[in-house]
Design a protein around this nucleic acid. Sequence first.
DNA 1: TATGATT
Length: 352
Amino acid sequence: MESQVAGGPAGPALPNGPLLGTNGATDDSKTNLIVNYLPQNMTQDEFKSLFGSIGDIESCKLVRDKITGQSLGYGFVNYSDPNDADKAINTLNGLKLQTKTIKVSYARPSSASIRDANLYVSGLPKTMSQKEMEQLFSQYGRIITSRILVDQVTGVSRGVGFIRFDKRIEAEEAIKGLNGQKPLGAAEPITVKFANNPSQKTGQALLTQLYQSSARRYAGPLHHQTQRFRLDNLLNMAYGVKRFSPIAIDGMSGLAGVGLSGGAAGAGWCIFVYNLSPEADESVLWQLFGPFGAVTNVKVIRDFTTNKCKGFGFVTMTNYDEAAMAIASLNGYRLGERVLQVSFKTSKQHKA
DNA sequence: TATGATT
């Protein structure tokens, strides 16, 4: 695992000058750090206290998936004092936390030109090292990070890697120049394309992630029946197994009038979602529930004056079994720092 | 902190 910014071994002149320390760099360039390879389970609080132990922090942010709230494994720290930023790099870069070795380096200024500059490379010769891969790509620009994935058991290269360039245009040039080309002495051509970015995850990928997080939450023995139910169904969904959920039989009889909303336009099963953040919006509900089946309506309930979410919302799903699956899967699901409570909406009306 | 409807 690399422990500093990979500049690439002495390559040709870079098309773009260094970003830091020149052309009127602001103070930010000396106080703002990016932290990579954080353990997946590290929280914002833990992140803050680790870097706060070095010195006063102006701001810090553990970056999380917008939809699931899962940590993306990196974050930013902005110190008040440039000396503390320097100290953080010297003392925390390379620190081993659980299975990860964290990387602490100065953050490049945020700009559109550095976005989407990460490449996915496959078909690499299994013998090619990270350094050799960097040599191959460095002719197209400044490499920020690189990685070759290895088999977890044998440690042998999987022939797949990632290259992040400083600039998107550099990445584009590398695709043009290297995609479909055979590296010197290689038998097969390599494939070079833009890496998927985590925000455009498919429903299947989201489900897999939900399953993984559920499995982690219930790492212990599964005594409780609802837990077993939840995991079984997530497994079934993840692998596309046809199932006939027991709760779809048991559940129906006990649910007279609950959740099923009337009216031709609004027909469907109404689900109550509690513990949304004040910033929650409709898109979060669409994206959380969409993977489970047909969603016809979502609504975040907001305070009329502040326009902030009041902590709950509603989702209408067409099919009972999909709604039950969504509830079983998402109830208790951690969205960011919050644990959602999800159930069929109960009706308060119809008392007389 | 807990079941809408400012369409």
